[in-house]
Every structure is written in C-alpha cells, then in structure tokens.
C-alpha cells in the first residue's frame, strides 16, 4: 500500500507566508508523518525548475503563481497538492496550516501509517 514519502514546499525566503510560517509548520507536518521535508526556493534557478514543474503539473498554476504551495509525495509516485498560501494577510495562511494540522484527513493518515 502506498505511503507518504516526502513533503515539498515551493516557497520564496522573502515571502512572510513562506518564512518562517510555512517552514515551521511544514517541519511539524513532516515530523508527524515521519517523512523528510524538501524546500524549493523559486529564486534559486535549479530549484525553481522543479518548483515550476510541480506547480504546473499538480499545483495551482498561474504565470506568477501564489506561494507557498505544499505537496505530499507518495511512494507510488502520486503527488498530492495540500495547500496554497492565501492571498490575504499572513494570519489567514497561518489558520489554514493550523486547520490542516488538526484535520480529520491528517488523523486518518497517521492512524493508517501506524496501524
């Protein structure tokens, strides 16, 4: 059965929705799932290419797309888009992270992994 393999966040270090908020919360989520966290910086040429690929293929694509975008990669190759930062103030994205971390979806996923 497929299981979570890696968490990836597409981000930019100058964006307050990304750092420190999403790096901190992403670390928390990755720890809960016992998987590594990968950060892809869109201002870093090599990382940007992979970031663009993920966003175009699985995320919320636009010419100047929103960040952060968070993806869960599965052992069977599936990539699941989990979260895109809100266009509103940072507290709105913070609330989305808080909701995600206490969601029924995450509880079920952790139960499945341990059971």
């Amino acid at each position: 059965m497929a299981e979570p393999k890696r968490l990836t966040i597409v981000l930019a270090p100058w964006c307050p929705h990304c750092e420190p908020l999403s790096v901190t919360e992403g670390n928390r989520l990755a720890r809960r799932l016992k998987i590594p966290l990968r950060l892809l910086d869109i201002d870093h040429a090599a990382q940007e290419k992979e970031a663009d690929r993920l966003v175009r293929r699985y995320g919320d694509s636009a010419p100047d797309y929103l960040i952060p975008q968070v993806f869960l990669e599965w052992s069977d190759g599936r990539v699941q888009h989990l979260l895109t930062g809100f266009s509103e103030e940072v507290p709105r994205t913070a609330r989305a992270w808080a909701d995600l971390l206490r969601s029924a979806w995450l509880r079920t996923l952790i139960r499945g992994a341990s059971g």
Binding site: D60, A62, D64, L66, T84, S87, D99, S103, A104
Partner: peptide, 19 residues
Amino acid sequence: RRDLRLARRHGPELGAEAE
C-alpha cells in the same frame, strides 16, 4: 493576466466543518 492567481482548497485546510 499575471495579476490573477489561482488557489484550490481541498478541505483539510478549511476547518472541521468545511472539511
């Protein structure tokens, strides 16, 4: 066009009721 940006919400990030 580049000032228009998409975001999809799936449920777990929207709170228990919406989820």
